[in-house]
């Protein structure tokens, strides 16, 4: 299972070009992070995969099959989708939110709910939350439910639209750790949209940094991008010149201590 963007573009009827000409391949079981500011077309690109947006030029292929040849509804049900904050169904209890897609696919309610309870455990939520409504959960808990819901139909592909954007930094880190842990076990093909370069570095195997209009500024692994930013735009976006990315070592009592540009300690070199 892999996703290929083949020269895709999206121009809206009013002439706005969201994405001009974008090509990129996401190998199976890998995580691609699409990073950029608003207007970079990152969300548009992700939405082309489940046909929430149809490309006006080029095509998106899943396992070599053009998504345009697939039925929209069936395609979407086969892909896990983790929305931004506020994307849960507010009128459905947590367990029913998680069970949504299996039930749409014809699984019996009892079986889907039982599976949903297991998934709550997988994403680290207590079963006592199952009967609550999303409005009664914290932002972090809601996004855990969203991840569980996306996994419920056992999809090969996960699309994540700024999934942890609205939670506080500590919770965000927890959620990212959990995603990494799940990904190590499940090996989904993930397309993650974020404006947070640190999040992209943490969870992305490969990163695409986008300029306005879906133009690729740089593609590479986090290491490659940090080591050799393609241009000033990337350098600025990644913050290569920021103090926390400018590390050096100082010798303290025989230990090599890593400090940042402001001489604040970051860790010890082994």
């Amino acid at each position: 299972m892999g996703i290929e963007f083949r020269g895709v573009g999206k121009t809206y009827p009013d002439g706005t070009v969201a994405v001009a000409d974008f090509s990129c391949t996401v190998p199976s079981h890998r995580t691609l992070a699409l990073v950029g500011s608003s207007g970079s077309g990152k969300t548009t690109l992700m939405r082309m995969v489940n046909r929430m947006v149809d490309a006006t030029t080029g095509s998106v292929l899943i396992d070599g099959r053009d998504v345009r040849d697939l039925d929209k509804v069936a395609l979407r049900r086969s892909i896990g989708y983790v929305p931004q904050a506020g994307g849960l169904l507010p009128h459905r209890r947590v367990v029913d939110n998680v069970a949504t897609v299996p039930i749409l696919n014809g699984t019996s309610k009892t079986a889907a709910r039982a599976a949903a309870m297991d998934l709550l455990t997988v994403v680290g939520l207590d079963h006592s939350l199952a009967k609550r409504y999303p409005g009664q959960l914290s932002g972090g808990q809601q996004q855990r439910v969203a991840v569980a819901r996306a996994l419920a139909s056992e999809p090969n592909i996960l699309l994540m639209d700024e999934p942890f954007g609205a939670v506080d930094p500590i919770v965000r880190r927890d959620l990212q750790d959990q995603l990494l842990q799940l990904q190590a076990e499940l090996g989904k093909t993930i397309v993650l949209v974020t404006h947070d370069i640190d999040e992209a570095f943490r969870v992305g195997d490969e990163i695409v940094i986008l300029k306005t209009g879906g133009i690729i500024a740089q593609v590479g692994t986090p290491q490659e991008i940090v080591a050799a930013p393609a241009d000033d735009f990337v350098r600025d976006f990644v913050g290569t010149d920021r103090a926390e990315r400018n590390l050096k070592t100082v010798d303290i009592d025989g230990k090599q201590v890593v400090v940042d540009g402001d001489d604040r300690p970051v860790g010890v070199l082994r």
Binding site: R47, N50, M52, V73, A74, L75, R76, R77, S78, Y81, P83, Q84, A85, G86, G87, L88, L89, P90, H91, T100, V101, L104, R149, L159
Partner: peptide, 27 residues
Amino acid sequence: VDERVREAAEAMGYSRTGLFWRVDLPL
């Protein structure tokens, strides 16, 4: 009805009628 909820429901694979009866109308 919250647009984020509608969009997420659509992206999960609700059909048009399903979206009306099970998402839009209740909300």
